[in-house]
Design a protein around this nucleic acid. Structure first.
Lengths: 146, 146
DNA sequence: TTATCTGCAAAGCATTTGCAGCACA
DNA sequence: TGTGCTGCAAATGCTTTGCAGATAA
């Protein structure tokens, strides 16, 4: 299914299929995490050590372009990706202390996007929303440290 | 007023005041934009060419620490700052084509932050929200280009 | 055969930092 | 006098790209 999307995109753009790209996609889809290029490269290497960082990097860009992957930014200077297969639109709350994250849904945000777009005559395409804070474990740790 | 905040913070931390830091703050407060370190350094240099990039960089960090400046991330790989003096909490809608931005208010977001924090036992400290899309001018330009 | 892929190493680029001399307290 | 402040230049760390050999079509 996702393979079809990628194959179609490659054909449309005059690009070629390759077994390495397929492997990267395959490993990527098996995760449920938010992976940096380096993270994914680490996983891919376990499967096929001959696949280099650059290929993973470029494949992730392709996947983002054909809609199979989304970039997520946890404000820590590293680009992460998550796949969109069978995933509802969601957002993240990130612990600024340990980096852990949870996902949540907030349907109000679509309404906000629509309302503000109309008000300022923008064509909104997407939004980013993220809550930053401290998770329960880190909060307790900080308290006991005092 | 803002000078007091900075002075108090410096004293509390055992740091010293300096005329250069004062100048950076002064120029920063006169803007209403979202400035990168480089942007602000450009403005500061007009006022005092002897002030280097590093000082602006470090002063912005200080201002962020004492609450006078906020970091904003327009997803383009550059950190920007805006000052918080006499400013209500607001958000940005950014045109991904020309980089132009508008500010808006959306009170729903505080409720979302509170609700999700409670649900997942987080101590939320802040959130980021941003709408990305195409502004009216760029939208028209794209249409006529077709 | 020919354009596209790949891995490597190197380049880019914004952000940080080490250090020697300067300035505030 | 003694910290902390500054500017410069260099280091960092992630992202991106040039290139030569490998591969899909």
């Amino acid at each position: 299914m996702a393979e079809r999307v990628l194959a179609g995109y490659l054909r449309e753009k005059g690009l070629k299929q390759s077994s390495k790209r397929d492997k990267v996609l395959d490993v990527f889809l098996k995760t449920r995490d938010h992976l940096s290029t380096e993270d994914l490269h680490g996983l891919v290497k376990q499967n096929d050590p001959s696949i280099g960082y650059t290929t993973v990097y470029r494949t992730l860009k392709l996947l983002a372009q054909c809609g199979l992957a989304f970039e997520v930014d946890f404000q820590d200077g590293v680009v992460r990706y998550e796949h969109s297969l069978n995933r509802r639109t969601h957002h993240h709350m990130v612990c600024t202390s340990c980096g852990d994250s949870v996902e949540f849904f907030a349907s109000e945000l679509d309404n906000v996007q629509r309302r503000i777009g109309k008000e300022f005559h923008f064509q909104p395409s997407r939004h980013t929303f993220q809550i930053l804070g401290t998770c329960e474990a880190c909060f307790k740790k900080n308290q006991s440290a005092t």
